[in-house]
Amino acid sequence: MSRIAKKPVQIPSGVTVEVVGDTIKARGPKGEGVQVLHADVIVSEAEGSLIFAPRDASADSVALVGTMRSLTQNLLTGVSSGYEKKLELVGVGYRAQAQGKMLNLSLGFSHPIEYSVPEGITIETPTQTEVLVKGIDLQKVGQVAAEIRAYRPPEPYKGKGVKYANEQILRKEAKKK
């Protein structure tokens, strides 16, 4: 097994975990979530932590233990503190505005873009050029941020577009005559 699979998952304070069959249900201050485990993985709860082990010694079972452990760790972190991705809009006239379950984007196209926010995700716009994507599911938060970024990815000459807050854009030099 990998080093990650051998580490137990600590249950944060304020989070209740219930292991029923092949599902793990977690409830915390940010909400509640469910993780379905693979049939080849066994979970046991001991002294405020979850311990993962393979059901048998096959290579597939051993490989799945680390995956299920990481997904469960992400679930517990999500229900206790949540996840957040920050996007920045760089460019003249590029604006974002959150209105309920819709995100209105002006990205230099001839038409405005209306992005429908999926269930379980909240989007905030502290300024016109910043978008905060928040939620308890790490995969869903990352997917929504990637979909918004895909409307106008940053270009390499001026850096205009939608970029992650900590993203470094490799700049190209303009063509010389």
Score class of each variant (00 low, 15 high):
Lys7Glu: 10
Gln10Phe: 01
Gly14Asp: 00
Gly14Gln: 02
Val15Asp: 00
Val15Gly: 02
Thr16Asn: 09
Thr16Ile: 03
Glu18Phe: 08
Glu18Thr: 11
Val20Trp: 04
Gly21Phe: 08
Gly21Pro: 02
Asp22Asn: 14
Thr23Cys: 09
Ile24Lys: 00
Ile24Met: 08
Lys25Phe: 14
Ala26Lys: 00
Glu32Arg: 13
Val34Lys: 08
Leu37Glu: 05
Ala39Arg: 14
Asp40Cys: 11
Val41Gly: 00
Val43Gln: 01
Val43Cys: 00
Val43Asn: 02
Glu45Trp: 02
Ser49Thr: 06
Pro54His: 07
Arg69Gly: 04
Leu71Ser: 09
Thr72Gln: 01
Gln73Pro: 00
Thr77Val: 11
Tyr83Val: 03
Lys86Asp: 11
Leu87Glu: 00
Val90Glu: 04
Gly93Met: 02
Tyr94Thr: 08
Ala96Val: 12
Gln97His: 11
Ala98Phe: 06
Gln99Arg: 15
Gly100Ala: 13
Met102Leu: 13
Leu103Asp: 03
Leu107Asp: 08
Leu107Phe: 09
Gly108His: 12
Glu119Tyr: 15
Ile123Met: 01
Gln128Ala: 15
Glu130Ile: 15
Leu132Ser: 13
Leu132Asn: 12
Val133Tyr: 01
Lys134Asp: 04
Ile136Cys: 10
Leu138His: 01
Gln139Ser: 15
Lys140Pro: 05
Gly142Pro: 10
Val144Met: 08
Glu147Leu: 15
Ile148Leu: 08
Ile148Trp: 04
Arg149Met: 10
Pro156Met: 07
Lys158Met: 11
Tyr164Asn: 09
Gln168Ser: 10
Lys177Leu: 15
Lys177Phe: 15
